[in-house]
Amino acid sequence: MSLEIKTNVIQPRRHTYSHIAKRLGADKPATRYQEGTWDLQPTVNFHYRPTWKPDQELYDKSLTSIQMEDWYTFNDPRQMYYGTYTMARHKMMEAEESHFKFIDKSNMIGLMDADWQQKIKTFLLPLRHFEWGANMNNCDCSDKAYGTAISQVALFAAMDRLGMAQIISRVGLLLDDNTGKSLDQAKVDWLESDLWQGVRKMVEDSFVLDDWFELLVAQNLCMDGVVFPLFYHYFEDAGIRQGGTAMSMLNEFMQDWGKDEKRWLDQLLKVTAAESAENAALLSKWAATWTERAVTAFTPIAKHVLGDEAADVMSSIRAEITKRAKKSGIEI
């Protein structure tokens, strides 16, 4: 049907939506990321105030003290919209799935030193609750954030955290032969063990933060800045010495995810700090406060796993966060 018509009579009349063309500075073809992100969120003429918080609008810039001339200054460097996001995660998960299958078949868990198996139960499994907390926090940021660009990266991150909580839980099921006993014990540890109370208190305090941008910094820069290197690099190294190769395989998803998080987060912090000295000052204050808290909170677990090395490890983790922040224009 269409082939019958010569293409010269069916020239497009415009190349993209007008709000996209405005941002591009010209009517030219746009990417799917751009069309699926820019200006999606309503901005004016809201009909009613939220009955759950009548002093704010449904979408409200004042829910953070960070100020941006344009909340679409940030663009996800990964250009993720829903389609590219799910495809990327499925790919990561496929690899992870084959590791689970291999480890299950080859009984690699059984090759781990019994001590180390026990240790994994005490340091890794309770972390699933931390991941669940990270899910809540990113969900909260996505809810309150202004503009689609930031709201959607936070929503993707929220779902990822649920995914990682589930991967950790599956490690537990591998360790306890699907009885779930290790998960029950991990919850008791999370709620009661001295090792975890600093972390749990920090996470619960973050739940009630008012400013969503502070929450985003606290969770994704500071807490994650400690957790990802500590658990999936330093603890892994310690495990390899005790037959823990299986864990190196299973950690892959989290390691890849940690790298992926840095890409969007560092870019977001960079453009936000570059916007104004006030923004940079706020980010610096939050980063300093929460890095200090995160390092302190995780130190008992670091000692539990790494012993005397823990102090050095924690200070190099702290130095790494400081260095990353500095690159984004944030002084800790």
């Binding site: 939506y17 709000h19 799917r32 069309e35 999606l40 309503p42 919209y81 389609g83």
Partner: peptide
Amino acid sequence: LRHVQTQIHSMSHYNKFFDGLHSAPH
């Protein structure tokens, strides 16, 4: 989020050839 994005992407082609589709959020 999927729904809104897939709809925008599907209709992007119509927007190139027909009127009235260029400023939906506004």
